[in-house]
Design a binder for these strands. Structure first.
Length: 105
DNA sequence: TACTTGACCGTAA
DNA sequence: ATTACGGCCAAGT
């Protein structure tokens, strides 16, 4: 059922290491969720006990209503942001990186 | 049943 | 930088 997706998404987010971040798309991809939007919705409903601050949008920004608190939490674990944006090339979770489509280059 | 909304993504102008 | 559009999937109205 989609309950399984729900748990896989939570599980994936729980496994993001401290000091690293992943995008909604990464989490959706790794947890085999059908779309990134579902990840956002699961976080809204069941994300209170997860390291939700490590999940960012694809361009390295946060959801608008969380921006300040999220950036502060990230800063406490060593993730620096510039003008409200995190440099994904520096902080993106390695497990998420390998989900990128092969055959480039 | 149909339409709207959301912690989204990618592309285009 | 911003807006707009299509795609995505589940929940709310």
């Amino acid at each position: 059922m989609d309950e399984e997706i729900h748990e896989r998404v939570r599980d994936t987010i729980k496994s993001i290491p401290r000091g690293r971040v992943a995008t909604y798309g990464d989490v959706a991809d790794i947890s085999k969720a059908p779309s990134p939007r579902l990840v956002g919705r699961i976080l809204q409903e069941d994300g209170h006990d997860l390291p939700w601050q490590r999940v960012l949008k694809a361009d390295g920004t946060c959801a608008p209503h969380l921006r300040d608190e999220q950036l502060q939490l990230l800063r406490e674990e060593g993730v620096m942001s510039l003008d409200g944006k995190v440099n994904l090339r520096e902080y993106r979770w390695e497990e998420a990186r390998k989900e990128e489509p092969p055959g480039l280059f």
